[in-house]
Design a protein around this nucleic acid. Structure first.
Length: 409
RNA sequence: CGGAGUGUGGCCUAAUUGGUAAGGCACACGAUUCGGGUUCGUGAGACUCCGGGUUCGAGUCCCGGCACUCCGACCA
């Protein structure tokens, strides 16, 4: 991609109303644009980051049998009344339409997927079943805040698992827990993301959250540094010791909840009468689990944890562009490198603008944050080729132009 | 939903006791410069959030809305 053709506008200053680190950085860098409180447009640069996160998540979900589908944003009032959440959920967007129908903007999709799956399965032979989607969720938060961390419309991956019995649910739940750790590791926040015991609701003793340690986090967790496991504040009164080593030596930390896994058991299969026949021909309610990752929140969390002032180095798999090629007055050489060395032009951003100062190009490159930066200038050419900066390793080398690709790979 | 604060060109800011909107960024054009948002000139761009009120006169004071931000409550 040539920078001169890329729809990107960065700014010297962040908008005044962007107060959180992620909002300041992402709006300044031209990743996102605020439409109203808690509602953001994703611009081409920001969408590239989100798509990369989606790709990681898809790969991992598919890897444990997940099958992707796409459920509607709109939902019928009746489904939500059936589960009791039409009245219980204060964040539910309820709308009266002109023809006097009442509809809901789905804030989550148990009420949608359970009736759907009911129409698909009838026997234990149809189980287990793992369905997921990546889609916008709508929640009328009393107070949207902190940029992408708590929005009213946000991108989420939600997977729902369906099992013939509890032990099968337990097995899959454990498997998912490990896969989640892998996802956050690939997203570059593995070391700071802590498996956290949280309230399980009425059907299960605990659920688990994946909490990323961050000063600006809105959750409070109690961390056992020895085991790298934590307990959420909401259950610390009953559980003020490490779930792993039983130590009471826990440290209070603030964190951002980036993912959550939850054993629903029969909470929703019951009201919607989702049942299948078991081996004996008896009808049984289906055991369910649900597993969410807030993808836009994950993007914000990476920024909160890794960005500096006007500067970021995105994790390898997340970066909007893997490589940034910057020409400083040497477009002939840079053009040739761009055209010949890179067949994957989608993953390199080539700043070919010739009316922009070096300082401005660098400042913008810092905001875009590719792991690798290549500079071609008089200075680099007289030193022997292109200057290749590996931001992950913190290393700068001069590489002959015909060897640049080799060195990158 | 309670409390507090803030609304001025696209963005960031200024405007004296109330006196007729100023600057920077960005944008267009022309020069200049070319390793950290270079410098200079020219130009375009504003019902000062909306609606009332006080006043000869309101960005400024008063009332009512709306929006945004922060604190708290809430967060399957």
């Amino acid at each position: 991609m040539k920078r001169s053709q890329f729809a990107l506008k960065t700014f010297r200053e962040a908008p005044k109303d962007a107060d959180s680190k992620n909002a300041r950085f992402l709006e300044r860098g031209g990743y996102i644009n605020k439409l109203m409180a808690g509602v953001y447009s994703f611009l081409p640069l920001g969408l590239r980051v989100m798509r990369n996160l989606e790709d990681i998540i898809r790969e991992e979900m598919d890897g444990i049998g997940g099958q992707e589908l796409f459920l509607p944003v709109l939902g019928p009032k009746e489904n939500w009344q059936k589960s009791g959440r039409y009245e219980d959920l204060d964040i539910l967007y309820k709308m009266d339409t002109v023809d006097e129908k009442q509809i809901v903007l789905n804030p989550t999709h148990e009420e949608i997927i359970v009736p759907l799956v009911k129409s698909m399965i009838s026997s234990y032979n149809d189980l287990p079943l793992y369905l997921y989607q990546i889609q916008d969720k709508f929640r009328n938060e009393k107070r949207a805040k902190s940029g992408l961390l708590r929005g009213r419309e946000f991108m989420m991956k939600d997977l729902y698992s369906f099992h013939i019995n509890e032990s099968d649910l337990d097995d899959y739940y454990e498997k998912m827990s490990r896969v989640y750790a892998k996802i956050f590791s690939r997203a570059g926040i593995g070391e700071k993301t802590i498996l956290t015991f949280a309230s399980g609701g009425t059907f299960s003793k605990y659920s688990h959250e994946f909490q990323t340690l961050s000063e600006n986090g809105e959750d409070t967790i109690y961390l056992c540094e020895k085991c790298n496991v934590a307990v959420n504040k909401e259950i610390i009164d009953e559980h003020n010791y490490c779930p792993n080593c039983k130590s009471a030596d826990l440290i209070e930390k603030s964190a951002i909840e980036v993912g959550n896994i939850f054993k629903l058991r029969t909470k929703y299969s019951k009201p919607f009468e989702l049942k299948v026949a078991n081996q004996k021909g008896e009808t049984k309610e289906v055991e369910m689990g649900c597993y969410g990752i807030g993808i836009s929140r994950l993007m914000a969390t990476i920024v909160e944890v890794t960005a500096g002032e006007g500067k970021i180095v995105w994790p390898e798999e997340v970066a909007p562009f893997k490589v940034q090629l910057i020409s400083l007055g040497r477009n002939v050489e840079a053009n040739e490198l761009y055209e010949t060395a890179y067949n994957d032009k989608q993953n390199i951003l080539y700043d070919d603008r010739d009316d922009i100062s070096a300082g401005e190009k660098f400042a913008e490159a810092d905001l875009i944050g590719s792991p690798v930066r290549i500079i071609i200038s008089d200075k680099s050419l007289s030193a022997g080729g292109a200057e290749v900066i590996d931001h992950q390793k913190g290393r700068t080398t001069i590489v002959p132009l015909d060897k640049v690709l080799v060195r990158i790979d």
